[in-house]
């Protein structure tokens, strides 16, 4: 079985990478989880996972003519398979984002849950590709008007490509936010439930500095507990690995940005 989720937000700053790794670690208790940094233009998952110096990365897999086997860019960390992306501009420029589909197709054959940490924008082919290819999106939002507007936009893009919404995760929730009422009303507009409200947390920032996912760095923090609650609320659907692989392989290849 495999289901591919694009973890998306529309804009940066919502804690998408922290959320991707936290959901991944929580889901790894039950599933075989692979996390891919699909934000090839502004990769940062490597810093969150202590893989700053990792070589090769996804960039190497996306460069035409290189024969790096996919498995060489897969790092076993924190109970998950992690595929980081490099941060060099040269790597980004040489990478052909369209090759992502093949990478994902290869990895889909051998995992239960694939999480794509997606670009914080919808302004290019490569940025929208994870949403196009995923089965469903997990929308990471802050409880603010601009963030909700962005989230609604992400969902419409996803709907346009036949990609469902698995749920909405409110992150960086601050004291005084009326999350109950906001969550209630949010669910009227999104096709998936509000998975959890994750409190704004110093531990999340400290985890990033330490190069560890939050659930490894501060498993007892309230934010970590909320992420586990979100993962538990996420129903992973059975999909045939072959179907996903085929879907990725048959997807239109976007040109380099």
């Amino acid at each position: 079985m495999v289901e591919v989720f694009a973890v998306a937000s529309g804009k940066g700053g919502t804690g998408k990478t922290t959320s991707t790794l936290a959901l991944g670690m929580a889901l790894a208790d039950e599933y075989d989880v692979t996390v891919i940094d699909a934000d090839t233009g502004m990769a940062n998952l490597l810093f969150h996972a202590g893989l700053d110096d990792a070589e090769p990365t996804l960039h190497d897999l996306l460069i035409e003519g290189t024969d790096v086997p996919v498995q060489q860019a897969v790092y076993e960390r924190f109970g998950m398979s992690v595929v980081p992306c490099g941060t060099s501009l040269a790597g980004f420029q040489a990478a052909d984002p369209g090759r992502l589909r093949n990478v994902v197709a290869d990895l889909a054959a051998d995992t239960d849950v694939l999480l794509l940490d997606s670009p914080a924008a919808l302004d290019s082919k490569s940025a929208v590709l994870p949403v196009v290819l995923a089965d469903r999106v997990v929308v990471v939002l802050q409880p603010t008007i601009p963030s909700l507007s962005d989230g609604l936009k992400v969902q419409e893009y996803a709907r346009s490509y036949g990609t469902g919404t698995a749920g909405v995760l409110f992150n960086k929730v601050r004291e005084g936010d009326d999350l109950d009422r906001v969550a209630d009303r949010t669910e009227k507009y999104f096709d998936g439930p509000v998975l959890a409200g994750v409190p704004d947390s110093d531990a999340a920032r400290a985890a990033r500095r330490a190069g560890e996912p939050l659930l490894a760095h501060a498993p007892d923090d309230d934010a970590a507990a909320a992420f586990r609650e979100a993962a538990a609320a996420l129903t992973v659907r059975d999909g045939e690995s072959g179907d996903v692989a085929d879907r990725f392989r048959s997807a239109v290849v976007p040109e380099s940005p």
């Binding site: 082919k125 929208v128 196009v132 419409e156 893009y157 709907r159 346009s160 997807a251 976007p254």
Partner: peptide
């Protein structure tokens, strides 16, 4: 957003998706 998604899909050659 729906309209923008469709316009851009055309721009990017993603209509078939």
């Amino acid at each position: 957003a729906r309209e923008e998604a469709r316009e851009r899909a055309a721009e990017w050659g993603l209509d078939d998706e």
